[in-house]
Amino acid sequence: MRRTFTDLHVYADLRSADTAKFLSKAAELGYTLVAVSLPPTQLTQQVEALRKLASTFNLDAAVRVDLKPRSTGELTQSLRRLRRKCEVIAVTCESKEVARQAAKDRRVDLLNFQSFDSRRRFFDHAEAELARQGLAALEVDVAHLLMVSGSARVRLLACLRREVQLAKAFNVPIILSSGAPNPRLLRKPREMAALASLFSLGEMEALDAVSTNPAGIVKRNREKLSPEFVAPGIRLIKEGKDC
């Protein structure tokens, strides 16, 4: 069966023309599903406009929210407020406490570590173990690799290699996303997979990280968000007096 590709991290501001550029570029590069990061405050107003715009490029658009909580309390509060409103929730972990809470909370889909300093990236054994028990996947933004060079890129590659090895050892799904701040930094799925070889991710694993793994997250959450969903494994099939 032919693979379909997904990019779970496309930045967009629907008030600017950039969103259309991002979406058209993503479609041109071979993606069929993209998750667009929207500000939590504008979710309800922008979702419909986003889906309409994406459909003009034959793209399926999912809504993503990026949380950057300063404390575990702020994280749980945001999750309570936003989980039923979007398909993908990513947490940028800037402290160990937040990283641990995000890894064990089953409402979190993606763990994102943006620091280039290995001491500020908290994906270690404990984090991987918690992520395995929860549902969170490790997200790698490829744009970070493209935006730096020299020693910064060397350090980032070393961190990513270690994190990917840990994720594989603990069966934590890996997601390759573009995370591109401008459309020219978007890359084709196979190019993303080739870049992933720089941090020791095999070709098939890398292709899964831009296809089945991210698509699985969106599918799982869409099922949960559908009105028929009751609990994991339980769906409402029919209702009425004749049941």
Partner: peptide, 17 residues
């Protein structure tokens, strides 16, 4: 992979696919 890392040609923003 190397081609994917190209972000500029002649110091102007570019990409090669």
């Amino acid at each position: 992979a190397a081609i994917a890392t190209i972000t500029a040609i002649r110091n102007k923003e570019a990409a090669v696919h």
